[in-house]
Design a binder for these strands. Structure first.
Lengths: 199, 199
DNA sequence: CCTCGGCTAGCAAGTATTTGCTAGATATAG
DNA sequence: CTATATCTAGCAAATACTTGCTAGCCGAGG
C-alpha cells in the first residue's frame, strides 16, 4: 500500500520537509531520518532521490529562493516598490517564520555545506541590492530627506525585517502582527521621506 | 604530564570553547568531542564537569549573558544612553560576531535544550526593554519627533543591530565597520530626533 | 619538614543510539 | 514486461555518556 511518486515530486517534498524541520525544530533535527519521517518514507529512500545530504541542502536553498524571492516589481514609484517588497517580507515573516530564519541565520549557512555560506549571503545581497536600488531612485527623484545616507538606510530597512521577525517571535509586539507590519513600515517610511523640512 | 585545573576553571573554559565553536563553526559542531578538543581534554572528561550537554548549554547562556549584558547606563540623557548602548552592541557585533549570533538566531535557542528558547528570548527582551525605556524618556522630554511611534522605533533600533551584523558579515558595507557603526547610528538617530519641524 | 590519605581531574575504553549512506530484494505504475 | 520508487537490512563513523583506573593536588599527623 505504498504510495509511489515521481522523483521530481519527492525531491520537492523532501526539500519542503527539510525547510519545515529547520524552521520548526532547528538544525539539530535536520537529518535524513527526520526528513524521511516527515515525508512518510524510510531514510534510506531519501538517497535514491538525492546523492547525499549536501545535495539536499542545495535543494533547500533553491526552494527558499523560489519561495521567498517572488520577483519584486521593477516599475512604478520607487518607494511604492520598496513598500511592497518590505511588506511582502514582513508578511512572509509572520506567516512562515521558518523561511526567514533560513536566510537570517548564519548558523544555517554553516550547516548547509561548503557553498552554503556564499549562497545564503548571495540571497541576502539580492535583498539589499533591491532595497538600495529603490532608495537610490527615490533619492534621485527627490523623495527622500536631503541628508539621508543611503547605505545606512539599506541597513535600517533590511534590519527592520529582522527586528520584526524576532519581536514577533518573542511576542514583544503591542498589537497583532498584521497590524504591526504596516505600523512599523509606515514609521520607517515617514522617517525616510522628506515629509518634514529643516527648520 | 597532564595539566589539572579546578572544575570551576574548566567549566568556564568549556563554556567559552562552546561559544567559540558555535560562533565560528556552527551548531553542527557543537558536540562534546569538539568542545573537548578545543579545550584540550578528552570528551569523557567533559562530563566530570557537566552532568550532560543540556547543562553545558545552560552555562553557555550564563556566559553570554555575562559577556554581553554589560550593565547599560541608567543615568544621563536618554538618547545618549541609547547611543552608548547601540554603539556598544554594534561594536560587539563587529569584534565578536559569535556572541551576537548566539542571541539573534532562533536556531541557537532550538539547540539549547528545553528552556533555551525562553532564556534567549528573555535576553532579547531585556535589550528591547532598555531601548524602549530610553525612547519613552526621550519622548517625555520632547527630544523625539512628535509623531514617532515608540514601539515601531524599538523594532527599528533593535533591528538595526541585526541588519548591521549581517551587512558586516556579508561585507556589504561601503566603508570599514568601525566607521559604519557611527554612520548608521547617526542616520537612525537623526531620523528619530526632532531636528526637523513640520512644514 | 615529610608523608600519608582523601579528593577528584584526567584518560582509555567501553556503552547504546544515531548519523549518513549503500546494496539487494520487492512491489507497483505505465 | 520494463522501469523505478520503495523497503529491508546493514555498514562505519559519530553521537552522548559511563566506567575503572591513574595520578596530581592539598590538608592533617607525625
Amino acid at each position: 500500500m505504498t504510495t509511489r511518486k515521481s522523483s521530481e515530486e519527492r525531491r520537492r517534498e523532501i526539500a519542503d520537509a527539510a525547510i519545515k524541520i529547520i524552521g520548526e525544530r532547528g538544525l539539530r533535527e535536520f537529518t535524513a531520518a527526520q526528513i524521511a519521517r516527515e515525508v512518510g518514507i524510510k531514510d534510506g529512500t531519501i538517497f535514491r532521490h538525492f546523492k547525499n545530504m549536501n545535495e539536499i541542502t542545495g535543494a533547500v536553498l533553491d526552494r527558499v529562493q523560489e519561495l521567498l524571492v517572488s520577483a519584486p516589481r521593477s516599475t512604478g514609484d520607487p518607494l511604492e516598490r520598496l513598500e511592497s517588497f518590505v511588506l511582502s517580507r514582513l508578511h512572509s515573516v509572520a506567516t512562515q517564520p521558518g523561511l526567514q530564519s533560513l536566510i537570517f541565520s548564519d548558523q544555517i549557512s554553516h550547516a548547509l555545506g561548503d557553498e552554503g555560506p556564499r549562497r545564503v549571503a548571495a540571497l541576502r545581497d539580492r535583498g539589499r541590492a533591491f532595497v538600495r536600488s529603490c532608495l537610490c531612485e527615490a533619492a534621485e527623484k527627490d523623495l527622500l530627506r536631503d541628508d539621508l545616507d543611503i547605505e545606512s538606510a539599506v541597513v535600517l530597512v533590511t534590519g527592520m525585517v529582522m527586528g520584526f521577525l524576532f519581536a514577533a517571535k518573542d511576542e514583544a509586539l503591542p498589537a497583532p502582527v498584521g497590524e504591526m507590519e504596516k505600523r512599523v513600515w509606515m514609521t520607517l517610511r515617514s522617517m525616510l521621506e522628506r515629509t518634514q523640512v529643516k527648520s
